[in-house]
Each structure stands twice: as C-alpha cells, then as structure tokens.
Amino acid sequence: MGWPEGYGRRVLAEIDSTNAEAARIMPDLAGPEWICALRQTAARGRRGRAWVAPEGNFAATLAMRPKETQDVVAQRSFVASLALYDAFAMLTGAEAALTLKWPNDVLLNGGKVAGILLEGLPGGGLAVGIGVNLIAAPGPAQVEEGAVPPVSLLSETGVRVTPERMLDALAEAWAVREHVFVTYGFAPIREAWLARAARVGETIVARTGTRSVTGIFETVDARGHIVLDTPQGRTAIAAADVFF
C-alpha cells in the first residue's frame, strides 16, 4: 500500500469539520489534498444533518479543483463510493458483504457503514467528504426514521482499522478510480457501480424535498440519476434520499 503520487496528506488531531477545513485551504491549494481529522466538533451529513462521529471513526475530505462542468463533477460521488468499496475489501476481505446505495452510501451486511458528502467550494473547488463507522455506529435515536440502520466495520467484520490506515487505503483506491473517471468518463464508473448496487430490481422509495416517489429501481442513467419504474412510467431522479 503506497500513498498516491500528486496527492497531499494532512492528519489533524481535531477540527470543526474536514469539509470546512477544505474550504479554508482551497485558495492556497497546489493540488488535490486529503484532510483527515481524528476528532470533529461540528461534523455534517447531507442536507445539513449532524454526522455522529465518535473518536476512532473516520472523517476525511478530499479537497480538489475539478475541471469538468458541475453535472460531471457531481458524478464523483460514484467514484468515492467505489473507492470506499475497494478500500473496505482490501482491509477486511469482506467484499461479498459490501453493496452501494444510491446516491452516496456504502452498506455492509445491509447496514450503513459509510456516507459521502460532496460540496462545491469557492473558486471552483470541490470537497469530497467521507465518514466511516470504523469502530462504532450511531444508535437508533440518532438516525432518521426509516433510514438504513448504521453498522460499524469492527462490529460486522471483527477487523479494527485506524483512521490513518483507512486514509491510506482510501487514497490509494480513489487515485485508481479517479484515473479511470478522468480518462474514460462516467461509463465505466457507472458500470462498476451498478455491479455492486443494492436493491436493483426491488421496490424503493425516493424522497426529495417536495415529493416521494415509489417504484422499482431499474438502473442509474448516464447522468448518474436513479431510474425508477413507477405506475406513472419510468422516472429519472437527480437527487433524493432513498428508503428501502
């Protein structure tokens, strides 16, 4: 396992949030840089939700300046999902127990073990925020009703991984998947993601801020949108929370 060439690496004892730190360092960033915090005091998940992160769990952000248009940049959530999948498989050997949940979660034995948060930064920057339940998972009271129950890597595999080791594995896996994405586009990333996707062919619920759509999960299209077969016909949804 080696640190990928061209990527910066910083491990901080404590920070408010790694995505916030990414925004602070963006003006002086010479190239993509991983920021890992051993403790966060103001961690955030999607839609501004609090992210519960006990010490020993993993919190990191890749700060970068992508060159693509915004719709293509958003497809890096799939790059991140695949990189997490690869890193977990490498660290635990539990490849068969891992699946990917649209749009940005990794599941282990059906429970949520990791989440991803992409945020645009000033000056065309991007923060790819990643949280992993390495040793502990939030309790039921800390999880949205109906959401996939969280699990930890330790509880499900018996493998104890430090944040620093997780960072090294993830950075290596990301560099490989990012190279494919930049070189060949979204198509091979989409194909690899769908091969590991959770609940394809099953009925799911996609909730946006204004509506709830129930249908059979058919595929992810060339834009990264989830496609559901509903009683009203095939529906492609750009952004939503998915419930099983």
Rank of each mutant, 00 (worst) to 15 (best):
L98Y: 13
E95H: 06
A240F: 10
I35K: 01
A97Q: 15
V11T: 12
P140M: 04
L98M: 13
T214P: 04
R196H: 03
T99A: 15
F217K: 01
T203Y: 07
P4E: 06
A80M: 07
V159E: 13
M166N: 02
A53W: 00
R65H: 12
R165D: 09
A127Q: 02
L98Q: 08
D168V: 08
F217R: 09
G158K: 05
D221Y: 07
P103R: 11
P231K: 14
A94C: 12
D16E: 14
R211H: 02
I237T: 07
K67G: 09
D241G: 14
A141W: 12
E218N: 15
M1F: 12
P231I: 14
G158I: 09
H225K: 11
G125R: 02
K112L: 13
L228P: 10
L107W: 11
G139A: 15
E202M: 00
F243C: 09
E145H: 08
V143Q: 11
G93K: 06
A198D: 15
A175F: 01
T92K: 03
A222Y: 13
T183E: 15
V132C: 10
T219Y: 02
V143L: 12
S17V: 01
P140Y: 03
V161A: 09
V52L: 10
V143W: 09
T162E: 14
G124A: 07
F244G: 13
P140K: 06
A50C: 03
L91H: 09
N19E: 08
V205C: 14
P150Q: 01
V242Y: 04
T210R: 15
P231Y: 13
V73I: 14
A206R: 02
G146D: 05
L228A: 11
G93M: 12
L118K: 07
I135P: 00
P66T: 04
P103V: 14
E68P: 04
G48C: 06
I226N: 03
R65Q: 08
A222D: 15
G6I: 10
R190C: 07
G125W: 01
A206V: 08
R46E: 04
L12R: 08
T210Q: 15
G224Q: 08
R223P: 00
A30T: 13
E178H: 11
F181L: 03
G146F: 12
A198E: 05
F181T: 03
V242Q: 02
A198Y: 06
G111H: 09
I116P: 02
A83K: 05
G233V: 09
E14S: 13
R46P: 00
F186S: 03
R234Y: 09
A240N: 09
P140R: 08
G215C: 11
L117W: 07
G185N: 06
K101V: 07
G131W: 00
L118I: 06
N133Y: 04
V242I: 15
A60M: 13
A30W: 01
I216R: 15
G8E: 03
A236F: 08
A239T: 14
G124C: 04
A198T: 00
E55C: 04
